[in-house]
């Protein structure tokens, strides 16, 4: 939800920038007025975070991509095709309700499930690294289902 609000704000700023330029050139043809370029640089982590979001979520002890995750990864694939020089690392994470070593393996499974799907969508394997953090790096602290759901995740990190 927060990501959505941010991208709407970014769009508003962009539109405002354009209209002020149009106004400048339209009214006085020979004068050049300067507008500021706002929003994230395309192809960066910030761009990814604002335009798509950097993470997808998994069910307990599962590594298959849910429909919501699949939709996000579809957009990641398109975004990666748009910026062919960008390489990424896919992080796999687990919640705290498992044992340490199993969760390392589970995080690896999750990262690779994302990687496999990106490859199927045409992204070159050489652009995709994976790393599992198991349960070692929760995104949301807390011992409740809401926190655990946020922590069972795959994260796309621009290298």
């Amino acid at each position: 939800m927060r990501m959505k609000i941010l991208s709407i704000l970014a769009a508003v700023v962009l539109v405002a920038g354009c209209s002020s330029d149009d106004a400048a050139t339209g009214a006085q043809g020979s004068t050049v007025s300067t507008g500021s370029v706002t929003g994230p640089v395309p192809g960066t982590q910030q761009d990814l975070n604002q335009t798509i979001g950097d993470r997808v979520f998994f069910d307990t002890d599962q590594y298959n991509l849910r429909p919501d995750a699949r939709a996000t990864v579809d957009r990641w694939a398109a975004w990666l095709q748009q910026f062919p020089n960008v390489n990424v690392t896919i992080e796999g994470h687990a919640d705290e309700r498992g044992t340490r070593e199993y969760n390392l393996a589970l995080g690896d499974r999750r990262a690779n499930a994302i990687r496999d799907y990106l490859i199927a969508l045409g992204v070159a394997p050489s652009r995709l690294a994976t790393i599992s953090y198991g349960k070692e790096r929760p995104a949301v602290p807390g011992s409740n289902e809401a926190a655990w759901q946020q922590n069972r995740r795959g994260v796309l990190v621009v290298n």
């Binding site: 070593e101 393996a105 690896d108 690779n112 599992s132």
Partner: peptide, 24 residues
């Protein structure tokens, strides 16, 4: 990734898991 190491009882080897393509 390599993980879950344990020495064998004679100390001459290490058992471990190796993750390749999501399979450990």
């Amino acid at each position: 990734m390599t993980f879950a190491p344990r020495f064998t009882p004679n100390g001459q080897s290490v058992l471990l898991s190796l993750a390749e393509g999501g399979n450990s």
